[in-house]
């Protein structure tokens, strides 16, 4: 799978990269919402892993909304990985179009299972 990771924290991004590339997925990193949207529209990845607290003009919620509004990315699964663990943020993210929500620190195994599940879904289609 081609996975776009939109995460501003270098260390977390690298950890996720290491995790998913170890399972044979390819990764495109972005450290801001604007850059993430740009890459997503240009490349239409198979999956987006998205942080919510992002620097710059677009936060994760807005990124989510923008990706859902773009024809090229409206069906790309978006998995949120955020330190925000309140119900309101989860509800907002899902309302903005996210498919799944993981709270940091997340379980790497659970994330891998999620990705594998998304991969199987994509293969069925």
């Amino acid at each position: 799978m081609r996975i776009l990771i939109i995460e501003d924290a270098d260390s977390i991004r690298r950890m996720i990269e290491a995790l998913v590339t170890g399972r044979g997925h390819s990764v495109e990193p972005a450290n801001s919402g604007a850059r993430g949207v740009e890459l997503a529209i240009a490349q239409a990845p198979d999956l987006v892993l998205l942080d919510l607290n992002l620097p710059g003009t677009l936060d994760g919620f807005q990124v989510c909304e923008k990706l859902r509004a773009e024809p090229n990315t409206k069906n790309v699964p978006i998995v949120i990985i955020s330190a925000l663990d309140d119900q309101d943020s989860k509800a907002r993210a899902l309302a903005a179009g996210a498919n799944a929500y993981y709270t940091k620190p997340f379980s790497p195994m659970a994330l891998l299972k999620e990705i594998e599940g998304r991969k199987r879904d994509a293969e069925k289609k």
Binding site: A9, S11, I12, M15, K104, P105, F106
Partner: peptide, 27 residues
């Protein structure tokens, strides 16, 4: 960021340890 990374690192370590302890598949 460091705090998040530390917690995430701990989560990785825990899962790795569990995987070894329970004989789950690890890479």
């Amino acid at each position: 960021e460091l705090d998040e990374a530390r917690k995430q690192g701990e989560a990785y370590a825990r899962e790795l340890a569990q995987a070894y302890a329970h004989g789950e598949e690890v890479s």
